[in-house]
Amino acid sequence: MPGEMRTFEIFEILEPLSQTIPFVYSSPHSGRVYPPDFIAQSRLEGAAIRRSEDHYVDELFSAAADLGAPLLFANFPRAYIDVNREPYELDPRMFDGALPAYANINSIRVAGGLGTIPRIVAENMEIYARRVPVEDALKRIDEIYKPYHAALRGLIARTHVKFGFGVLIDCHSMPGNIRVSGSNIRPDFIIGDRYGTSASTDLSRFAMHILEEMGFTAVRNKPYAGGFITEHYGRPARGLHALQIEVNRSLYIDEATLQKRPDFDVVAGAITAFMRQMADYVEKFAGDTALAAE
């Protein structure tokens, strides 16, 4: 069973001794502490319910603090509540009781079973054996979703005040079988900037350049352009840039067993080098109006 703790810290922030670079790193989907009451509600067991995790992404990006940036990472699993959604993207068919009138029940993500309280994990596997009390869903939003975003907003605001601008890197992983539509390209990394709306195009292109120089296959925005976090916090005109990065899981874990591959530390080292070069780039061009606040 993927976790036996009855109580746990909702999230953690790995802080540098002093923030020296205008970056914030977030890993909203790497949580792997599964509350027993959630396991009791689920029809899935063992590795099946873990299919939505961004496995060990918090560890892959853990050097952020050594480089001078905070890393916020979830301990709760994405299958329990997804903070990379609007706060109330909810499917009324999942719940016992009436949802609040302001719930977004018609989004594409809700229709696909991937709302704030997900209905499925990967491969369209239904999570719940029966309807979830609506009070349970609203409690998760109040006690987990809202505190996570309050912490993220605080880190971004602090960074913006200190440096005059800021860069949020939202860190994720993707299945190894992902292909770019219309091609046979299997990307190692995907950089998402919401098609240029959440970050400077120069910044996202440089991120891809770093990865390609390391020998990785990197693409931009396809098939993942960024979720709610990237869209919501990216405000380039205000000097707030948000990029989503997806790492191909097959690079660092065995997707059948979910165990780390021998190359795990090599991939983590490459990501550390990526973070360092991103910081160097932003420091070099900090006065550029494309990055700094107007």
Rank of each mutant, 00 (worst) to 15 (best):
Pro28Ile: 08
Pro28Cys: 03
Pro28Trp: 11
Pro28Ser: 03
Pro28Phe: 06
Pro28Leu: 11
His29Phe: 03
His29Leu: 09
His29Lys: 09
His29Gly: 07
His29Ala: 12
His29Trp: 03
Ser30Val: 02
Ser30Met: 06
Ser30Trp: 04
Ser30Phe: 07
Ser30Arg: 02
Ser30Asn: 13
Ser30Asp: 04
Ser30Cys: 13
Ser30His: 00
Gly31Met: 01
Gly31Asp: 01
Arg32Asp: 10
Arg32Ser: 13
Arg32Gly: 04
Arg32Lys: 10
Arg32Ile: 07
Val33Gly: 02
Val33Ser: 10
Val33Phe: 07
Val33Arg: 14
Val33Thr: 14
Tyr34Thr: 02
Tyr34His: 07
Tyr34Leu: 05
Tyr34Asp: 10
Pro35Met: 12
Pro35Ser: 08
Pro35Cys: 10
Pro35Asn: 11
Pro35Ala: 13
Pro36Asn: 15
Pro36Val: 13
Asp37Ala: 09
Asp37Val: 03
Asp37Met: 02
Asp37Gln: 02
Asp37His: 04
Asp37Ser: 13
Phe38Asp: 13
Phe38Ala: 12
Phe38Tyr: 15
Phe38Ser: 14
Ile39Gly: 13
Ala40Asp: 15
Ala40Trp: 00
Ala40Pro: 00
Ala40Cys: 09
Ala40Arg: 12
Ala40Ile: 09
Gln41Trp: 09
Gln41Val: 05
Gln41Leu: 15
Gln41Asp: 15
Gln41Ile: 01
Gln41Glu: 15
Gln41Phe: 14
Ser42Tyr: 07
Ser42Gln: 05
Ser42Pro: 01
Ser42His: 05
Arg43Asn: 11
Arg43Cys: 08
Arg43Leu: 06
Arg43Thr: 11
Leu44Pro: 10
Leu44Phe: 05
Leu44Gly: 10
Leu44Val: 00
Glu45Cys: 06
Glu45Ser: 12
Glu45Trp: 00
Glu45Gly: 05
Glu45Asp: 06
Gly46Arg: 05
Gly46Lys: 05
Gly46Cys: 09
Gly46Leu: 04
Gly46Tyr: 05
Ala47Gln: 04
Ala47Ser: 09
Ala47Phe: 00
Ala47Pro: 01
Ala47Gly: 04
Ala47Lys: 11
Ala47Ile: 10
Ala48Asn: 11
Ala48Phe: 01
Ala48Cys: 08
Ala48Tyr: 03
Ile49Gly: 14
Ile49Asp: 14
Ile49Trp: 03
Ile49Thr: 13
Ile49Cys: 13
Arg50Asp: 00
Arg50Val: 03
Arg50Phe: 01
Arg50Gln: 14
Arg50Ala: 13
Arg51Asp: 10
Arg51Thr: 04
Arg51Lys: 15
Ser52Lys: 09
Ser52Arg: 12
Glu53Trp: 00
Glu53Ile: 06
Glu53Thr: 09
Glu53Asn: 06
Glu53Arg: 08
Glu53Met: 07
Asp54Val: 04
Asp54Arg: 01
Asp54Trp: 00
Asp54Tyr: 01
Asp54Ile: 02
Asp54Asn: 01
Asp54His: 01
His55Glu: 14
His55Phe: 15
His55Trp: 14
His55Val: 14
Tyr56Ala: 14
Tyr56Gly: 08
Tyr56Ser: 11
Tyr56Pro: 00
Tyr56Ile: 07
Val57Arg: 04
Val57Trp: 05
Val57Asp: 11
Val57Gly: 11
Asp58Lys: 04
Glu59Met: 08
Glu59Lys: 03
Glu59Trp: 02
Glu59Ile: 02
Leu60Val: 07
Leu60Pro: 00
Leu60Trp: 02
Leu60Met: 01
Leu60Asp: 07
Phe61Val: 13
Phe61Pro: 05
Phe61Leu: 06
Phe61Asp: 08
